[in-house]
């Protein structure tokens, strides 16, 4: 018995033409409306690209400053993940009618730029905890939230290319977040370490809240 979820290839009619199928299969429930128009999507993508760039630059720069060999290698590996995300967003911008991608490669606001300055400040070899806290307990959770918020609010049909990139990027963010948390838990072994990690996190989180997140106030992330 044919129901909504089955189709037929039987030939109908005298001319041998196949019967018509609906443009959306019964299992395809994607929706047309989305919260962001082209200009707003480009603005957000520009903020993503700027922040991913600042993140991969910071990770690359920090490699030489951390003495822990395993962490050195992880930072080098993650550096590339975020460079690749920046590349995805760089290539998406002209598709969103921004022919000069640098124009939109900017922080959401001054507070976001201030956040990156504060996050990248630690340099000394004894500050690995602070370096990792900024990336893995503040910025990357924000990326996870911002990318998820975008993915769940954008049009599943008109903005499918952005969704595809968001999914790839999110996979890396989740994996790197877990790596970062493992590294931090292996380093935070005394009450003093706990206090250092918490103090740095709350300092950075306060700036991030002022910024309203990676894309500024009005959404999550």
């Amino acid at each position: 018995m044919a129901d909504e979820t089955t189709t037929t290839t039987e030939i109908s009619g005298d001319d041998g033409a196949l019967p018509g199928r609906p443009p959306f299969a019964p299992w395809d429930r994607r929706d047309l409306p989305g919260s962001f128009d082209v200009a707003e999507t480009a603005r957000r993508v520009g903020n993503y690209k700027w922040t991913e760039m600042k993140l991969f630059e910071a990770l690359g720069g920090w490699v030489a400053t951390v003495p822990e060999l395993d962490i050195k290698m992880r930072l080098g590996t993650h550096c590339y993940h975020h460079a690749w995300h920046a590349e995805l967003w760089h290539k998406r911008l002209p598709e969103l009618r921004e022919m000069k991608p640098e124009r939109l490669t900017v922080p959401a606001n001054d507070a976001m730029a201030e956040f990156i300055t504060a996050m990248t400040e630690p340099e000394d070899a004894h500050l690995t905890i602070e370096k990792l806290v900024g990336v893995y307990r503040v910025l990357i959770p924000r990326f996870v939230a911002a990318y998820t918020y975008h993915m769940n609010n954008t049009s599943e049909i008109t903005d499918a290319p952005t969704i595809r990139s968001l999914k790839f990027a999110l996979q890396d963010e989740f994996d790197d977040w877990r790596d970062g948390e493992l590294m931090l838990q292996s380093l935070i072994t005394t009450p003093d370490h706990v206090a250092r990690a918490a103090a740095h996190q709350s300092k950075l989180e306060a700036i991030m809240v002022r910024a309203g997140g990676i894309t500024g106030p009005g959404s999550i992330g």
Partner: peptide, 12 residues
Amino acid sequence: KLDMARQAWDEA
């Protein structure tokens, strides 16, 4: 810059 980040991963 992207190539240098890629190289960082390779060297890791």
